[in-house]
């Protein structure tokens, strides 16, 4: 009885040591829908960036003699109202849509996360001041902001990214602030303080990693949202000016021809948007599960 009772019988089978991401990755791979989502995104990236190298089209010169041709051997998806090849345009449009979507989401997430984490961890007056700014910006209708911008600026891809990020960083900021508020009162964050550790360690080692699941998931939803916002902006005329293209533009132009039966102007870009949005959402869902270490099987 002098020995400390062996409570560790269950631990005697030694587990294989695995890398930090081995767990999340295998959990991710187990989720079949997530793999499908990832496949769709990869396929679209190949389609938009490698596609034009194989399938050459003229997306600069208008050719009205070729306008609104239905799908055929030379134009697999037909041509649009000014004679651009629809398939080639889908590729070119995809490039700017994906770029704007991913870049804006990334920017919004990083900025929003930092903002929220600082506010949540600092608490008190700083928190109140920072969050009131967020509330104030949320109170401005996005549509109003967009119309205003559309009337004063000529849109470029860079501006588009900034505008969308400006509209969408508020969500992650609130989300992370809420997380940080609860995380900072956790016993394990308290214990860092009791060991003599400072706020930087608490934020970087404990609060951020424990909030990362939410942040990453939210980021994927942000990508989907950003792509849809580009479409909205294009519809309002703040889209990228021709001859550059994006899926939102293509869709909103195509809608003018609904009654002419030019289905090839509507379905392809519409389907592309829906597919990419769904794919990113699927990935987000799976990431949420895979970042939850407690759900991992061993």
């Amino acid at each position: 009885m002098t020995a400390i009772p062996a409570d560790d019988a269950v631990l005697s089978d030694s587990p294989k040591t695995r890398g930090v991401f081995a767990g999340p990755l295998s959990a991710f791979a187990e989720n079949k829908l997530a793999v499908v989502g990832l496949g769709i995104v990869v396929a679209f990236i190949l389609f938009c960036y490698v596609g034009p190298l194989v399938y050459h089209t003229d997306q600069v010169h208008i050719d009205l003699s070729q306008a609104t041709l239905p799908p055929s051997g030379t134009h697999p998806l037909g041509t649009n109202e000014v004679g651009y090849d629809q398939l080639g345009r889908l590729m070119a449009g995809g490039q700017s849509s994906l770029e704007v979507g991913v870049a804006a989401a990334l920017l919004a997430t990083v900025f929003g996360t930092l903002w929220g984490a600082i506010a949540g961890y600092a608490g008190g007056f700083i928190d109140s001041a920072m969050m009131r700014i967020v509330d104030a910006l949320l109170a401005v209708p996005a549509l109003f902001l967009l119309l205003f911008l559309a009337s004063i600026a000529r849109p470029t891809i860079g501006l588009l990214i900034l505008v969308i990020a400006f509209i969408s960083w508020l969500g992650p900021a609130r989300l992370v602030r809420g997380q940080a508020l609860t995380l900072r009162t956790r016993d394990y964050v308290t214990s860092v303080r009791l060991m003599g550790g400072g706020p930087l360690r608490a934020i970087l080692r404990h609060i951020a990693p424990n909030a990362i699941g939410t942040v990453v998931v939210n980021a994927t939803f942000q990508v989907a949202d950003a792509i849809l916002l580009v479409a909205t902006l294009s519809f309002l005329g703040l889209g990228i000016p021709p001859p550059a293209a994006n899926w939102g533009d293509m869709l909103s132009n195509g809608i003018n021809y609904t009654y002419d039966g030019y289905w090839w102007l509507i379905y392809p870009p519409g389907l592309a948007i829906v597919l990419v949005v769904v794919a990113f959402n699927l990935i987000g869902d799976a990431l949420r599960d895979s970042f939850e270490v407690r759900l991992q099987k061993r």
């Binding site: 016993d187 394990y188 308290t190 003599g196 404990h206 424990n210 407690r294």
Partner: peptide, 20 residues
């Protein structure tokens, strides 16, 4: 510096250990 001399043992061992 003093903190190394006194430590707290928490009630709920689950909440006091970083799950990640």
């Amino acid at each position: 510096r003093h903190r190394r001399d006194f430590q707290l043992m928490f009630q709920d061992p689950y909440a006091s250990l970083d799950p990640r």
